[in-house]
Amino acid sequence: MTDRFSFNKSPGASKAAVVAAILIFFIFPFFAGDYAIDTAFFFGIYALLGLSLNIVLGEVGLFDLGHAGFYAIGAYTTAILNTVYGLPVLALAPVSAMAAALFAYLVCSPIIHLRGDYLCIVTIGMGEIVRLALINNPFNITGGPNGVFGIDFPSLGGFLVIDSSIEYYFLIWGVVGVTIWGLVRLQNSKIGRAWNYIREDEAAAGAIGVDVRKYKLLAFVIGAGIAGVAGNIYASKLMVVSPESFSFWESCLLFCIVLIGGMGSIPGVLIGAAFISLFPEIFRPFAMYRMLVFGSVMILMMMFRPQGFWPRKRGRFSPGKALLKQEGEA
């Protein structure tokens, strides 16, 4: 079990660390103020988004810089169906996931054969098209630049209403937990192996009979679906969605989460998400200089840990440097 999470040599110590981390996660919100809990909530949102992009970027190695587009589709699906048709938010979570996944399937089908940077720019274009379309308010349903507001709280049949910071905290981290469990299962399945094979050598994978096109599309569909769920929770937490929240900048942040943490590594994604979401909060006292610090730290991190903070270990040898070197030459 431990090697799946790619922990270091001593499984006992790392297991203890995980137990401690989980305990802290359960106890922390009862002692912290609302501000800290909300920060932890957004950490959870970024963790979920990072995990979803990690499938596309980390597992399959596809450059996706338009991931905020899928997130937006999920958030707007929830927002519109809830405010216009009054459907309950929790029931809309799978609907949002499906809407985002379907969108990913339709959009990515014709472009999935593009390579590297060409795929990158097409996903950027796709994300921008989604954002611009939301601003332009097609059929008068997206509310234009102001967005949609007045989204309900999620509730279970009316008796458990999730409306406080602490409940949202448990909701998002519950979803993150389930997602991690599913992704670990996926990593060790036939699908996960096919994905990694495609990332390491697409031509060889194709030659040996892996349906490259199918597995790439599957990665986009699953990644978009999870991003859609993140959009659903985000919409109900903020009660308002507007196009600014889903800009190219957001996609870049998600990209950084995966790369700072370490491609394909689940604990790495959590660390990357922590960095992206907590750093600006912690450094708030620096006021207008904090983003200067943020940019410099990003550069420094890549200088000292180019393979990411917690790279995924595979098999007996450490892939980190050898892998990156190969990629640099290709």
């Binding site: 790369l259 983003m291 200067l292 940019g295 991190m301 070197k325 990629e327």
Partner: peptide, 28 residues
Amino acid sequence: RPIYPTGRLPAVVSALGASIFIQNAIMV
């Protein structure tokens, strides 16, 4: 220069970091 020998993707993050830095330096 310290980063591109290690690969393309770390350089992308570094480039984004540089972008954030310059943009905010202009703002300051």
